[in-house]
Design a protein around this nucleic acid. Structure first.
Length: 540
DNA sequence: TCTCGCACTTC
DNA sequence: CGAAGTGCGAG
């Protein structure tokens, strides 16, 4: 089934993310047609074709519905799952090669938003980026066969607005726009960390972009959540919904809430949707202009302000969306350099100027640099940037039976990328670099052809450090096999916080003990360093 | 704006 | 059954 679905989507055209190369502007034209032909599968080349990996967003239609209305994701102190959940179908991997799949969520732009007149508007400059945390899929590392066998779900990933979150959830600022990304890192022995050739690729599905909120702003979104999220079934209105409401209120007769009324009105009006209280339709035309995509190639929008405000086209315009706008570069890379404790890196953080002022031309920093610290023992380190694990060197890891991603962290890039959304996902692929790149070259995003190693552009560079990949990779190779074993390890690292025991995250529990039971559900969410940036960044 | 407890749901 | 994921609405 999935397969079918996936293929169907692919047929439609745009959803498949192709890796290989990220087309740059220059190449855009060639890609416009959409690379239908992708390089598919030539199985001949086993390990090396990370660029041939294809990823299809599961439930894309649902995501599109949300996107057209302006997706909102609730963020809470305790952590809230995303809905729709981020699930993908992966094909084109070498069945025997091990890969690590992880996601991160980066700022889509540098604005803060407000919901007025039934639409999202820019309301100032974004808050300093939060620590970029990564969510490593619990099965990582696992073989290509494992990943391709079924849908890869990131459903347990949670979002929080608690900057001091001890659970390892991904920290976001409310009322800001974000873009989830998927990274696939080859974790084979051959590419174990240290190797400069470790390859990875990044996939971005523009339809998964969202604005984080503490409570829903757009009732259309509320409605979609209620209608599609099984856990919200209790709020469904179908004929009986009213009854539920009434019961809640202790009444025997149906009571209709304002919200429900609004929603119903809206839905009934269909296209007029927005019009509820305040005029709403307004932005349509504008929207169109901003959000367009090319066939597959993401185009950054040059007009930042406007684009942003209209990022979410209303449903009506959806058809219009697929236009092209010019953009500068699509490239995004991940830099996985590793090797420095992330603290250091952090410090080095880049000049704020670069980051923040990235001209429109810059693309979003898609990636970040991971740093790998050798030390992995401490979980805390992972969680908090400031804290470093003391365990020196890989202590734990090496010894651990099941290597896991011990404290690996990636840093996701914070600065805002200003990319408009991309229609299709873009993929990027790059070799891992072993070092941190402080060297930023100002590479334009453009870049990269696929294979070329790129230093990250300064703007992209974030301070964050990451430890993760590396260790992950290396461990992966050694790891026994099952994802299960590593699960616990991972989790343990990340979530544990010295002072705070996290109950909810029992994930880590496993750490010390090897109990097999550890659930693989544990989420692996890592944080990247960050901090230093904040201060500088805020604009004045 | 955000936090909390609630009733309801899925798993 | 209990744990955990939902939006609601009062505060």
């Amino acid at each position: 089934m999935l397969q079918e679905k996936a293929s169907a989507v692919a047929d439609e055209g745009m959803t498949v993310a192709q890796l290989g190369g990220r087309p740059e502007l220059a190449s855009d034209s060639s890609h416009l047609g959409l690379p239908t032909t992708p390089s598919i599968p030539q199985n001949n080349e086993p390990d090396k074709n990370i660029e041939n990996i294809k990823v299809v967003l599961h439930d894309r239609e649902l995501w599109k519905k949300f996107h057209e209305a302006g997706t909102e994701m609730i963020i809470t102190k305790a952590g809230r799952r995303m809905f729709p959940s981020y699930k993908v179908k992966v094909t084109g991997m070498n069945p025997k090669t091990k890969y690590i799949l992880l996601t991160d969520i980066i700022p889509a732009d540098d604005h803060r938003y407000k919901f007025c007149d039934n639409k999202w508007m820019v309301a100032g400059k974004a808050e300093p980026a939060m620590p970029g945390r990564l969510y490593v899929h619990p099965d990582s590392p696992a073989t290509g066969a494992h990943w391709m066998r079924q849908l890869v779900s990131f459903q347990k990933l949670k979002l929080t607005n608690n900057h001091l979150d001890p659970f390892g959830h991904i920290i976001l600022n409310s009322m800001h726009k974000y873009q989830p990304r998927l990274h696939i890192v080859k974790a084979d022995e051959n590419n174990a960390f240290g190797s400069k050739n470790t390859a990875y690729c990044t996939h971005v599905f523009h339809e998964t972009a969202f604005i984080s909120v503490t409570s829903y702003q757009n009732h259309k979104i509320t409605q979609l959540k209620i209608e599609n999220n099984p856990f919200a079934k209790g709020f469904r209105g179908s004929d009986e919904g009213d009854l539920r409401v009434s019961r809640l209120q202790g009444k025997d007769y149906p009571v209709i809430s304002k919200n429900m009324v609004r929603q119903r009105l809206i839905s009934s009006h269909g296209h007029l949707s927005g019009k509820l209280g305040t005029g709403v339709l307004s932005s349509h035309s504008q929207v169109v202009s901003h959000y367009q995509y090319d066939s597959g190639v993401p185009l950054p929008n040059s007009d930042s302000q406007e684009a942003l405000s209209h990022s979410f086209p209303s449903s009506r315009e959806s058809s219009l969306l697929y236009h092209c706008f010019k953009h500068r570069d699509n490239t995004r890379h991940l830099d996985l350099g590793c090797k420095r404790p992330y603290l250091d890196t952090t410090a080095s953080a880049v000049s704020e100027e670069h980051y923040f002022r990235s001209p429109p031309s810059y693309d979003p920093p898609l990636l970040s640099h991971p740093y790998c610290s050798e030390a992995l023992g401490s979980r805390e380190a992972c969680m908090y940037g400031g804290v470093e694990g003391e365990t020196g060197g890989a202590v734990g890891t090496d010894d651990l039976p099941a290597p896991s991603l011990n404290c690996n962290m990636w840093a996701s890039v914070q600065p805002y990328p200003r990319y408009g959304m991309q229609t299709v996902e873009s993929v990027q692929y790059q070799p891992f670099t072993a070092h941190f790149n402080s060297t930023a070259s100002a590479v334009p995003h453009h870049s990269s052809s696929m294979q070329r190693p790129h230093p990250a552009p300064p703007d992209l560079v974030t301070f964050t450090t990451q430890r993760v990949l590396q260790s992950t990779a290396s461990s992966a190779s050694s790891s026994p096999s099952g994802p299960a074993s590593r699960d616990r390890a991972h989790s343990s690292l990340f979530h544990r916080n010295p002072g705070s025991p996290l109950r909810s995250q029992r994930d880590f529990t496993g750490y010390p003990n090897h109990s097999p039971t550890s659930t693989r559900e544990s989420a692996y969410q890592f944080q990247t360093g960050l901090s230093s940036v904040g201060p500088h960044w805020t604009d004045s």
